[in-house]
C-alpha cells in the first residue's frame, strides 16, 4: 500500500522523490495514476502530491518569447487560456480531446506528458511547437527538447528522483498556423487511433507531430517549403515523410488502417494549419 505525502516546498518534494527512487510517483491530476493503482499496474510506495508545493513554477506564465507551463496547469485551464488559444490552436484542439470535462478539470499537461503514452493527445502539438522540458532533481535542473524526452512507451527522460517542473513553448513564428486532427472509434470521449498536429509557417515550411503511430510520439518536417496549393504534391511529400511512422495493430485499429488514415489526417491538419496562417484565430 502506498504512502501519501503532500510536501509544501520543491526541496521537500525532490528529497522525497530521491528517497523513494523508483518507488515514488509524482501526483497532480491522478487521471492515469489512479487507473494504474486500481489495476495494480503501478504499485508505488510513495505518492508525492505536488499540488501543495508553493515554490514550483506558476501554472502558466506568458512572456514575449512564449509561454511557460508549470506542473499543475490542467488541460481545462490550458484550453481556456486566451493567449494559448491565439498562439497554439493545435494544442487547444488537442487538449479539448483529452477525456471529458471532468477529466480535463484534473489532468495536467505536464503529467500527461510524463505519462509517456505514444497516443497522448497533447504530445503532437507540443512537438510541432518545439516544446522544451525542464527537469529538476536534487542535483539541479536540466532542459531538453520534448522530442528527446519521449523514450519509449511509458518511458521518458524524467527518471527516479526527478520532476518535470516546466514545459516551455516558444512563441510561434509570425504568420504561421497550426492545427490538430485525430481519429477515434466513436465521436464521444475516446483514445486516439491516430493523431496529427501540424504547424505551417508563412513560407510553407511544414512540421508534423504524430501520435499513436509508433512507440513514442514523433516529430517530423517536410523537406523544404511546400506549395500548399498543389495538393497532389503535398500528398506525395506526406507519403514519403510519413514513412517515419511505425504503427502497430492493437485493440483500437490495425496497422494498415493507421498507415492510411495517418496520411489523411496529416493532409487535413496541414491544410487547416495553412488556412489559419492569416487570422491566427482558432476556428470555432
Amino acid at each position: 500500500m502506498p504512502k501519501y505525502y503532500r510536501p509544501t516546498s520543491r526541496a521537500d518534494a525532490l528529497t522525497a522523490l530521491a528517497g523513494a527512487g523508483t518507488g515514488a510517483r509524482p501526483f497532480v491530476g491522478g487521471t492515469d495514476l489512479l487507473v494504474g493503482l486500481r489495476h495494480h499496474t503501478v504499485e508505488p510506495e510513495l505518492i508525492v502530491d505536488l499540488k501543495g508545493v508553493a515554490d514550483l513554477p506558476e501554472p502558466i506564465v506568458v512572456t514575449d518569447d512564449g509561454v511557460q507551463i508549470g506542473p499543475t496547469l490542467t488541460m481545462g485551464e490550458l484550453a481556456a487560456h486566451p493567449l494559448v488559444q491565439r498562439w497554439y490552436p493545435a494544442l487547444v484542439e488537442a487538449a479539448l480531446t483529452v477525456g471529458s470535462v471532468a477529466i480535463r478539470n484534473r489532468a495536467s499537461l505536464v503529467g500527461n506528458s510524463c505519462n509517456g503514452s505514444p497516443a497522448a493527445d497533447t504530445a503532437p502539438p507540443l512537438l510541432v511547437h518545439d516544446a522544451r522540458v525542464t527537469i529538476a532533481s536534487q542535483d539541479g535542473e536540466r532542459t531538453a527538447p520534448l522530442v528527446e524526452f519521449f523514450l519509449a512507451p511509458r518511458r521518458t527522460l524524467c527518471g527516479p528522483g526527478e520532476l518535470v517542473i516546466r514545459i516551455d513553448l516558444p512563441r510561434p513564428a509570425e504568420g504561421s498556423g497550426s492545427a490538430f486532427r485525430r481519429l477515434t472509434r466513436r465521436r464521444g470521449v475516446d483514445l486516439a487511433t491516430v493523431s496529427v498536429a501540424a504547424v505551417v509557417d508563412s513560407d510553407g515550411r511544414v512540421v508534423l507531430g504524430l501520435g499513436a503511430v509508433g512507440p513514442r510520439p514523433i516529430r517530423t518536417e517536410l523537406p523544404g517549403p511546400v506549395d500548399l496549393t498543389d495538393e497532389p504534391a503535398l500528398i506525395r511529400l506526406l507519403d514519403e515523410q510519413l514513412e517515419v511512422a511505425t504503427p502497430i495493430s492493437d485493440v483500437r485499429a490495425s496497422r494498415e488502417y493507421r498507415v492510411a488514415t495517418l496520411r489523411v489526417l496529416a493532409k487535413r491538419a496541414v491544410l487547416a494549419a495553412a488556412d489559419r496562417r492569416t487570422s491566427r484565430e482558432m476556428a470555432s
Binding site: 501519501y4 491522478g30 487521471t31 489512479l34 499540488k51 481545462g76 470535462v101 471532468a102 478539470n105 484534473r106
Partner: peptide
C-alpha cells in the same frame, strides 16, 4: 471539487484535506 466537476473515482480522499 471546489466547484469544479471531477470524477470522484480519480481523486484520492487524502488529497481533499
Amino acid at each position: 471539487l471546489d466547484g469544479r466537476a471531477v470524477n470522484a473515482c480519480l481523486v484520492l480522499c487524502v488529497e481533499v484535506e
